[in-house]
Simulated assay, not measured.
Amino acid sequence: MDSMILKDCILCPRECHVDRTAGKKGYCKVTDELVVARAALHMWEEPCISGEEGSGTVFFSGCALGCVYCQNSNIAKSLAGKIITIERLAEIFLELEAKGANNINLVTPSHYVLHIIEALNISRQKGLTLPIVYNCSGYEKVEALKLLEGYIDIYLTDLKYMSAEPAEKYSNCKDYFLVAAGAIEEMVRQVKEANFDDRGIMQRGVIVRHLTLPGYLEDSKAIIKYLYETYGDRIFISIMNQYTPITKNRAYPELNRKITEEEYEELIGYAIEIGLENGFIQEGETALESFIPEFNGEGV
């Protein structure tokens, strides 16, 4: 691993310039130590990712975005998890493959790009053949993504905001859309068209997720419109209704509710109206805490 990059870390758009090798923590709240909170088969991703067998999901601790409504805040902010070696991470990949995982799903991986590349090199030498999923917030530097070319088969990325107002208010990054739009362009360049096996499990491609927030229906429509007009059927768009207010947020009372069925139905109707076909929607009670896994060190 090129530790020199972590001595003056600019892996993410925050560009902290922190020396993570000296035990300093960046905006992501981690040093150069690799911290993982959970590694297990996960059934709650999009159908072409989880399938019936599950996605081999590795949840990394820390996050460079830090949304105020984060559903995984106990690992993103409080850093629940276990410090492991790169060699152990490579073993985890192989263990998940042995359990029948459809892919290796790297969740919130941005600040560990260098660790992941080395672990993938080791695990591939030992026989890992599964597609690799990069499951991220969308707030990614193109330069960091370029380091991953040839390693990542599927980009599963968020596009959270188009307007600067909610981006700055809820995630402290008013440049979110510009950064994420550039990142998605690079992701599509790398993996080209989507590809599936005979079971319908994605082997290559880009899925862009959008989590609808209460009160931001028009921003959500603008995001769907942008993605469809820019990429058409080259990508899949996952329109999510699972926003869950885990605790009451006194600073942002507008976020203390789920989105309504009417709001979500209006957004889906809009997507259909503009011609979107390659998409995923959520049905039923998805906005439940049960869809948030326990970060208890399983599989680590």
Rank of each mutant, 00 (worst) to 15 (best):
V18Q: 14
E46K: 02
I49P: 03
Y27H: 14
T57S: 13
M187Y: 05
V179I: 15
E185N: 12
L211A: 02
K248E: 13
I184A: 03
S290D: 14
R14F: 12
E53L: 15
C28E: 08
H111K: 06
L255C: 02
Q282Y: 11
E298H: 08
C63S: 04
E289I: 13
E218S: 13
A271E: 05
T244R: 04
I201N: 04
N121Y: 00
I122E: 04
Y170M: 00
E33R: 14
A101V: 12
L145I: 08
D175E: 15
S50D: 09
G81M: 02
V35W: 06
K77R: 12
G275V: 03
E263F: 05
L114F: 00
C70A: 05
Y176D: 12
E285M: 09
Y228H: 15
N103Y: 00
E273S: 13
T260M: 06
G51L: 10
V58G: 12
A40G: 08
A80H: 14
M202V: 10
T286H: 08
M240L: 15
L96V: 06
Y264V: 00
D19L: 10
P47E: 05
L217W: 00
I224H: 00
V206D: 04
K99V: 02
V36Y: 11
L96M: 11
I86M: 07
L276S: 00
L288E: 15
E168I: 08
D2M: 10
D219Q: 07
I117A: 06
C16A: 03
L276Y: 05
I49S: 06
G54Q: 03
S220W: 02
I92S: 09
G23R: 10
L227F: 09
